[in-house]
Design a protein around this nucleic acid. Sequence first.
DNA 1: CAGGAGCGATACCCGGGCGGTATCGCCGTC
DNA 2: GACGGCGATACCGCCCGGGTATCGCTCCTG
Lengths: 282, 282
Amino acid sequence: METRELRYFVAVAEELHFGRAAQRLGISQPPLSRAIGGLERRLGTVLLERGSRGVTLTGAGAVLLREARAALDAVEAAERRTRRAALAATGSPAVVLAAKAGASGELLAKLLDAYAAERDAVAVDVVLCGPGEQAQVLRNGRADVALLHRPFDDTAGFDTEDLHTEGQVAILPAGHPLSARPHVRLAEVADLPGLPLPRWPRPDGTFPDGPGPKVRDHTQLTQLIALGRACAVIPESGRIGLGEGLAAVPVPDAPDVTTVIAWPPHSRSTAVAGLVRAATAL
Amino acid sequence: METRELRYFVAVAEELHFGRAAQRLGISQPPLSRAIGGLERRLGTVLLERGSRGVTLTGAGAVLLREARAALDAVEAAERRTRRAALAATGSPAVVLAAKAGASGELLAKLLDAYAAERDAVAVDVVLCGPGEQAQVLRNGRADVALLHRPFDDTAGFDTEDLHTEGQVAILPAGHPLSARPHVRLAEVADLPGLPLPRWPRPDGTFPDGPGPKVRDHTQLTQLIALGRACAVIPESGRIGLGEGLAAVPVPDAPDVTTVIAWPPHSRSTAVAGLVRAATAL
DNA sequence: CAGGAGCGATACCCGGGCGGTATCGCCGTC
DNA sequence: GACGGCGATACCGCCCGGGTATCGCTCCTG
């Protein structure tokens, strides 16, 4: 199987429409039909059910979609990491670290300082991601190492070291009745009248159904809470630098959040190893 | 990057010789030179140093070799798993379990029994591998789930559950002076005159240098020991069914061996989940 | 029920790229 | 200095990937 075929299949499987998929791929529809047909013939199975009412995935098609995404990520990563290695050899070595925007700010700063103090430390490019995007950028090679947060982020497939565990706090508009309490239970925060928990995007960019407002980053979240339109439960470390208008109340029964440093298991980069060493020594 | 280019590059990087690589790929040498040249041009870097004395990898080339192998494994896995899913849909569902030949025999039997007793259990094909091959077959999709042995096998990149931990024993020819001892130290076994530790193949099939005989599987090992040509240190559970002519002596200071069940992190198969459940419940 | 719209499959053509053979250029080595 | 080994280059032919035009089917609609 060629990566071109995998790209084509993923496009059709995501759009569930040959015409739109072809448009997205920048080709016309007939070659796309032929490519998918050829793939099905060689695999000896039907991947897509062409009904009169659009296209649906078969079981084998669903498996291939999952596997093809992983394979394409690996190919992309190969290209990016090779390019990065070539750059490193010609004089400007750098390592790319992915972190969630607005999380673990203090830990990140300490990590960068500690690593910079090491012998033969190289430049660290920091890529700030939306929630849940770090694993993706680590898989497709945009980053060499990432800070993830269990249990929110999926650490499967990476080597990891735990760095820090903390409890969670509820963030409420200042002056809210609950904000004076020494602590609250998760259930109490879950359905406050008029203050729903916000909805975060899924990995594919869509939002789950529900009453809460859609948010994509930490700034949107704090603004919405300050406006009295939502509340949230976030790791303790997120409370620092919250600004006016917000109050934080511990939520003892919310699951602990562990910040971990993660890297691709076959990584052989000394820079990544140095960052991990610096992080675990914090 | 197309998988064809990656396959070509891996072949050259492994052979370090364009002619032999072309032969292995079943094409002639000129198109191979052109393909590699094109890859280097598009990546904007030199991957292979063509010296008068053969070919060597550059730094970027070494990175690409590692990443390309991973990517090709992922593509292969996509193809195999899709084929398997298609088979499963047409009536003969099966799950493939990889285990090291000659290890954990008892545990494997109990696992298969326990799983077979489950509701809607499917057929389990067992693939017996040489030492260290399980991770490879799991990565490239020949197997869906595997039994690995830490610290010997590399579990990086997989989800795992620990099943069983045990100590190690030295296997000696019956009648050897040490065989009467209640236990021995690792260092004592390491350099017995005339009884060297055998050499196991590396993942790429070559053997490390050293005095010991080359062995590829458990049978060869036991024969060599019975012949008085080698000794070995293996997990306790390997002593059962040793047969005549061999003695086992505990080695308390050898590292413990943990048998784990491992599967690809994005696996969604209910059969794999069932096997894992059965295994952890043992 | 006829007409039309939407969508994927098919027919057919064209051009680029992949693979093949022949040959060159560069080094070592005898 | 001749030769042999090895990778690069030149050149050619053909297949395959991509394009346009069109078909066949289904469903909706007036």
